[in-house]
Amino acid sequence: MTDKPGLLLVNLGSPDAPTTKAVRKYLFQFLHDKRVIDTSRWIWCPILHFIILRTRPARSAKAYAKVWGEEGAEAPLVAITRAQAKGIAERLGEDVHVDIAMRYGNPSIGSALDALKAKGCRRIAILPMYPQFAGATTASVYDGVAKALTRRMDVPELRYLRDYHDDPRYIKALGEGLKSHLKTLDWTPDVIMTSYHGLPQSYVDKGDPYQAECIHTTDLLRAHLNMSHADMRTTFQSRFGPKAWLQPYTDNTLEKLPSEGMKKVAVMMPGFSADCLETLEEIALEAHETFEEHGGEKFTAVPCLNDDPEHLDFLAAIARENLLKGWL
């Protein structure tokens, strides 16, 4: 075995199949994470086990089925992350072993670390696939790696990337992706929305930098494209439960836009490195329907950067510069 470093791309995860049983297993793991739900376990666990896990899996399974693809295929998020890993590996060359893991579901962080260890990797770089840092995402990846190594006698040297929300190359890739998509349309949007996954307001109040980094990403993208605040708006999607989440909400904004004279809209999701349920179903399908129901005429969801060559060039570059420096 050769002493090559490993690079592990980690994203959120998906169920193993678009079925109620698989979704329940996935949600059990996801919603037990204290980084995701910081409510007292005495309060949260009864709600999770006796209400949410009995009702939500069936609804979520139907949503996953809309975007899953062929029977037996992997979830879009997992398949795209594999394609990203393949492209990054091609760019880094044979000096690095590149693999993927999901924070929840499969392939697990533990199994990926085992696979890299079996290849002789004593140094492993962790690249969380979240442009903006949040405790519920990036910090949870740190927790997941630590938990996977808890009982091991021999652990690798580790490096982590915190975020890349303001890297000029990332902003450029977002801008080029947006321009390329808009060229495929026979109409021009009245407004472009940058929709980020939401977070409870209380998390930000406690010091989570996520909201500020999302707003900064949009500000930089707006400047890169020479757009005004009226041309590009920041919103937050995917709220869950009764707590106040980051605002303005994406769905509420889409409901109001037609009454403000903006009946043609493009929605992009700069907080997602790969298309997933929240982009393919929640935005491209549900948000589209909501917009039209309230008088909207034209709607488009801009694909995430996924395995776009410029995106892969950038990810390989930050891996080499920030994580693998001195190891190669």
Score class of each variant (00 low, 15 high):
K4H: 13
P5D: 05
L7K: 10
G13F: 02
P15A: 09
P18S: 09
V23R: 01
K25F: 03
L27F: 04
F28R: 15
Q29W: 01
L31S: 05
H32S: 14
D33T: 09
K34Y: 08
V36P: 01
D38A: 10
S40T: 13
R41L: 13
W42Q: 14
W42V: 15
I43A: 13
W44F: 03
W44Y: 04
P46I: 01
L48R: 12
H49I: 06
L53E: 10
L53R: 13
R54H: 14
A58W: 08
A61C: 12
K62I: 13
G69K: 11
E70L: 02
G72H: 12
A73P: 10
A75R: 09
P76I: 05
P76A: 09
Q84C: 05
A85E: 06
G87E: 02
G87C: 04
I88E: 10
G93F: 01
E94A: 14
V96Q: 02
V98T: 13
A101Q: 08
A101K: 06
P107S: 08
S108T: 14
K117P: 01
K117H: 12
K119I: 04
R122P: 03
R122C: 08
P128Q: 03
M129I: 05
Y130N: 03
Y130Q: 04
P131F: 00
Q132C: 07
F133D: 04
F133M: 01
A134E: 07
T137C: 02
S140A: 13
Y142M: 14
D143M: 03
E157K: 11
Y160D: 04
L161I: 06
R162W: 03
I171R: 02
I171F: 04
I171T: 10
A173Y: 07
G175F: 02
E176K: 12
K183L: 12
D186C: 12
P189R: 05
T194A: 15
Y196C: 06
Y196N: 06
D205M: 11
G207P: 09
P209I: 11
C214A: 05
I215K: 08
I215A: 11
D219V: 00
L220A: 09
L221A: 06
A223T: 14
H224M: 03
N226W: 00
N226K: 15
H229V: 00
F240E: 02
G241Q: 02
G241K: 02
P242V: 14
A244F: 00
W245D: 08
P248G: 09
Y249E: 15
G261T: 01
M262N: 13
K263W: 00
K264R: 15
V265L: 01
V265Q: 10
A266T: 07
A266W: 03
M268H: 10
P270K: 01
P270M: 04
A274V: 14
C276D: 03
E281G: 03
A284F: 02
H288M: 06
T290D: 12
F291Q: 07
E292G: 10
A301S: 15
A301F: 07
C304G: 12
D308R: 15
D308I: 04
H311R: 12
L312G: 10
A316L: 04
K325M: 02
G326L: 03
W327K: 04
W327L: 02
